[in-house]
Amino acid sequence: MSEETIPKPEDAPAGIYGPDGRPQFFTDPAMDRFVAAFLNLASEVWVQEERILALEAQADPPRANPDRDVVLKAFIDRVFSPLREPRGSE
């Protein structure tokens, strides 16, 4: 946020920040940026999902307006399941 030198932790392992001073986790920094874009996209898809839920509740009032937090958890579990660590394979 300023031209001042950004203090970094004194015992930070070498190579954990990219040339811009930001954390870098993958060998190819494009992968870090791609993940960020993917999360933004997932967020926007969820916004559309909430719009649909609202419209459905309007169109069909008897239909219970589902608990958004419960629906969101299922959404996140479904979308991000490939990121989960496989269990029982070690």
């Binding site: 967020s43 969820w46 916004v47 909430e50 719009r51 958004r68 937090d69 959404f75």
Partner: peptide, 16 residues
């Protein structure tokens, strides 16, 4: 509503 949805998503993502 969109802001609420976006914030809910971020909270849910952090929880995950």
């Amino acid at each position: 509503p969109d802001e609420t949805a976006r914030q809910r998503f971020v909270s849910g993502l952090r929880s995950f």
